[in-house]
Design a protein around this nucleic acid. Sequence first.
DNA 1: GCTTTTGCCGCATAAAATTCGGGGAATGAC
DNA 2: GTCATTCCCCGAATTTTATGCGGCAAAAGC
Lengths: 164, 164
Amino acid sequence: MTGVKVKAGSAAVIDRTDTRIMAVLQAEGRIANVELARRVNLSPSPCLERVRRLEAAGLIRSYGAKLDAAALGYGTSAFIQVTLDRTTADVFDRFRDAVVLIDAVAECHMVAGGFDYLLKLRLKDMEAYREVLASIVDLPGVAQTHTYVVIEAIKHDSGLPLKA
Amino acid sequence: MTGVKVKAGSAAVIDRTDTRIMAVLQAEGRIANVELARRVNLSPSPCLERVRRLEAAGLIRSYGAKLDAAALGYGTSAFIQVTLDRTTADVFDRFRDAVVLIDAVAECHMVAGGFDYLLKLRLKDMEAYREVLASIVDLPGVAQTHTYVVIEAIKHDSGLPLKA
DNA sequence: GCTTTTGCCGCATAAAATTCGGGGAATGAC
DNA sequence: GTCATTCCCCGAATTTTATGCGGCAAAAGC
């Protein structure tokens, strides 16, 4: 054991092939390893090894099916801007802990510029919206909200623009 | 051929098992069919058949790997509200056609209430933001924009809340 | 130039996917 | 109530895929 390779943090080397693998998996998560290997010009064994490494390194977090929200009854979405009544750490913390528990809240981002949080809601209908809004207004620290209902989704989450 | 079952559109019957399958696949898209079958108390064959049916029906749109955006250099995101200079159909159309071509635009929603479009951007850094903003301001019909930079993502897209 | 390291290939084995035929329970006709 | 039909499910057989293991060749280090 002469020299131990010390890697700074997770600084694993990601080459062009890894990027292509991720690009393919991002679009076709359930593709067979054999086919994936073919796409990136590799034999199955090293290809699978790379996938495992990317997973272990956390670059590939997980895999998931993308479902048709509208067909499953979640055809409506909306964004809500939330302003808290004070900008102290505990107010933020309590809001965060509470907001993530609401199922209808698909995303929650703390933002700079005019208000404090921007939430994305996933709803069955407007009826559901009313109920959810009530829950949100009741969350700790909420001073005011402003809603923008999505009329049409022009572009859905398209994944990272990895250069193939 | 005595009676032809007339199904209204894609009104296939989705039972509890189908829902559970989708719930599992939403969280673990690359799970083996054998294991999925075990989870939903079914043998592999009918389980696979159900998955295929759900895919064919479009309820399962696709599968995809969820990548670590920050680790891949896309650690910054921002929302941009866009107001168009006129609300005529051709102005909207031209904007839509152009905005989807910008890689940095991860999502684009037409919204009701105050402005016209809400975009979600995925960026490498603030430097990149400047360039992207310039592109967006130059899009056809754009009258004004307002940006909200995400400081912290409290909750990411969590998928549909299917009751398991 | 030699040694070490790294990464790939190809084979062999185990596991999974996929296809088929058959059977049982619920549904509906009479 | 009985019989025919239909719908799903199961389990076995076959084809594909995943996966672990040497061994080789190119690249990097010294």
